[in-house]
């Protein structure tokens, strides 16, 4: 197996782990979004590595990366929309204060 592929996959795994930690531990909505961005970045690194080292002849691998970038952009747009609405209504985007969302 290619060592470059393993290095890329381990980097992606580390980004995924750091992102999970950030998304779970932060109390601020914008910081939680940063954690989700890192999770998606980890997935993106894996996609590029799989495409480059296993199937470079199939451009669908690059297409998946574009889809992940789209998901990142959508997450940012919707997240900031929700953050503005929340800030306007409550004056804060601290998620610990959003107890009314609790099921």
């Amino acid at each position: 197996m290619s060592p470059e592929l393993i290095i890329a996959l381990v980097s992606g795994a580390a980004l995924f782990g750091v992102g999970i930690y950030g998304a779970l531990s932060q109390t601020n909505l914008v910081m939680i979004m940063m954690g989700v961005e890192l999770i998606l970045a980890g997935a993106m690194v894996n996609m590029v590595a799989f495409w480059r080292y296993l199937h470079p002849d199939n451009p669908a691998g690059q297409m998946f990366v574009l889809i992940i970038m789209t998901v990142m952009a959508i997450e940012m747009a919707v997240g900031f929309g929700v953050a503005i609405a929340r800030f306007r209504a409550k004056g804060s985007v601290e998620m610990e204060e959003a107890t009314e969302l609790k099921g």
Partner: peptide
Amino acid sequence: ITGFVSFVAAV
């Protein structure tokens, strides 16, 4: 713990 377990599982 969750972040570390996720990292180890993915590795």
